[in-house]
Amino acid sequence: MIEVKELRKSFKSLEAVKGSSFTVEEGEIFGFLGPNGAGKSTTINILSTMLKLTSGEVKINGYDVTKEKNKVRESIGIIFQENTLDEKLTAKENLMLHCKLYRVPKKSRKARIDEVLAIVDLTDNLNQTVEKFSGGMKRRLEIARGLLHYPKVLFLDEPSVGLDPQTRAHIWEYILKLKEKENMTMFLTTHYLDEAEISDRIAIMDHGEIIALDTPKRLKAQLGGDVIELQTTDNQAALEEINEKFSVIEATLHEEGITLKVKNSDEFVSTFMKQLETPVTGLDIRKPTLNDVFLSMTGREIRD
């Protein structure tokens, strides 16, 4: 459904995307993660025909993004990071405009508007001006709009940014409902790594290159072992001590403490607590999350 081959994009002297390649299968949820400035937005903009590529080849639904822009535009739906509704118009007017811009057949317009509004629970707000909507409602309406023309590929650029956890959960519910119904392909970027867990596969981009691409499960397994979050009175000293005395897979110092990766946390902790001289103030053992994957791959938290 999405084929990217040796994609490169340069802005004057800066190379934002350095020859990345990947494919996304039909019906797949593809998570696209990376720290800010990694080249994510540039990639999305190229895939959605908003930006010209420097070299390489990108095909969406079999259409080339540079040669068949309009075919690509008909195949995709985008839910932008920022609000792109016309707030002075009503929900219905916004949706109707979208139908016309995306050539939805005249006969099916009304039915489709009703359908997408039902999915996002906004049926009662059909004739209300968008200005009066809450943040969550606007987001839902925007998602509904992105689905109106039954896109083959839906790009979700930070779909739940700035929403409260409850609304976030709801929105995900809607998106998954849809995916099941339409077998849509989804291309997702998010700052919330727990959200990325729903992806079938995840690509991590850093400094314009894709540094990892696999299922969330395998990415986590790659880390090998468990994670220990450690806080001590002197983290710097503790880190030196750990590197000296213990065999760990990896030890990283960050603002809140030290993250250790070990093969078997139970065995490790019992000896570790006895032998570490720096006083420990906090200790937390857990299975690896995508955040750990991200941290070990990029050396940064996603929010940095």
């Binding site: 959605s48 025909t49 908003m50 309009n70 075919k71 535009r73 008909e74 995709i76 985008i78 932008f80 920022e82 609000n83 792109t84 509704l85 016309d86 707030e87 979208h98 811009l101 995306y102 050539r103």
Partner: peptide
């Protein structure tokens, strides 16, 4: 400024 231009520009309208 309000983002609506993006909605228009990514649409298949020439």
């Amino acid at each position: 400024d309000f983002g609506y231009m993006r909605e228009i520009l990514v649409s298949p309208v020439s």
